[in-house]
């Protein structure tokens, strides 16, 4: 019989509860996944009753407030706090999103549940190990490949229309919300590149200045790297920058079909 339970050391324990101070104003309850790799203990979920009077409106503000005033060992990535660096991606109330652009108000009045991005090895608390994700990104050679030297007196120019084609795909902040929301990626992240890396591949395939289109398509013509995408669309649903990796993947598939026919 197949065993559908989590492995023993992945089971989540009940963690600590940090009560709101007496006389707290408006309280929000945050239930946050914790994992301390040095303790030898299973992960746990801590409950923080946070007085949000005097705290900023976003989930990231709450995390920073908790780290600053309740438990300084709470660990998460963050940098720009304005949705441009892609550091603070995490699973908030069941959806992958950026903590810094998710308003607590928009999550209703209930407990806010915060977990690391799903199906990734956890380094500590809300910090997943993104080594494989970055290696996959690097594998699509996300840079200009051209044999023709640039014009001696200037840059390689693009028309406005050519620039507009790559404008959106180039806006990806590599937050990994999409790839870690993709069931195909969960099962096959060792071989399927996932939506973020494929969107990056697409961005260079359609770049008018790039001269490696054929090689780029060759590299993707593989049952796993590209074709593990089954158009489930979770990626496009969760992208915090409103990008459409699923469509980019479909476009790459179309280009591959077209070049053989």
């Amino acid at each position: 019989m197949a065993d559908f339970r989590l492995p023993a050391n992945s089971r989540i324990r009940q963690g600590k509860t940090h009560r709101a101070p007496a006389g707290a104003g408006k309280v929000r309850v945050l239930r946050i996944y914790r994992f301390d790799p040095t303790s030898g203990e299973n992960p746990r979920v801590d409950t923080f009753e946070l007085d949000v009077a005097g705290c900023g409106p976003m989930v990231l503000d709450a995390l920073i407030q908790i780290k600053g005033t309740i438990d300084s060992s709470l660990t998460f990535r963050r940098s720009c706090r304005e949705g441009i660096c892609g550091s603070c991606a995490m699973n908030i109330d069941g959806l992958n999103r950026l903590a810094c652009t998710t308003a607590m108000e928009d999550l209703g009045g209930g407990d806010i549940r915060i977990y690391p991005l799903p199906h990734m090895p956890v380094v500590k608390d809300l910090v997943p190990d993104l080594t494989n994700f970055y290696a996959q990104y690097a594998s699509v050679k996300p840079w200009l490949v051209a044999q023709t030297p640039p014009p001696p007196d200037g840059e390689r120019l693009q028309s406005k229309a050519e620039q507009e084609k790559i404008d959106r795909p180039a806006a990806c902040i590599l937050c990994a919300c999409c790839s870690t929301a993709c069931p195909s990626y969960w099962w096959n992240s060792d071989r399927f590149l996932g939506p973020a890396a494929l969107l990056a591949a697409y961005r260079w395939i359609i770049d008018s200045r790039d001269e490696a289109t054929g090689e780029r398509l060759d590299a993707l013509e593989d049952p796993f790297r590209l074709y593990r995408c089954h158009t489930i669309m979770n990626c496009t649903d969760v992208c915090p920058k409103d990008l459409n990796p699923a469509k980019a993947i479909a476009e790459i598939k179309r280009m591959l079909v077209e070049r053989t026919s």
């Binding site: 040095t38 780290k67 300084s72 660990t75 998460f76």
Partner: peptide, 12 residues
């Protein structure tokens, strides 16, 4: 005061 003493991803 630092409360996290670990050597793994110690943001504190």
């Amino acid at each position: 005061r630092v409360s996290d003493r670990s050597l793994i991803w110690n943001t504190d």
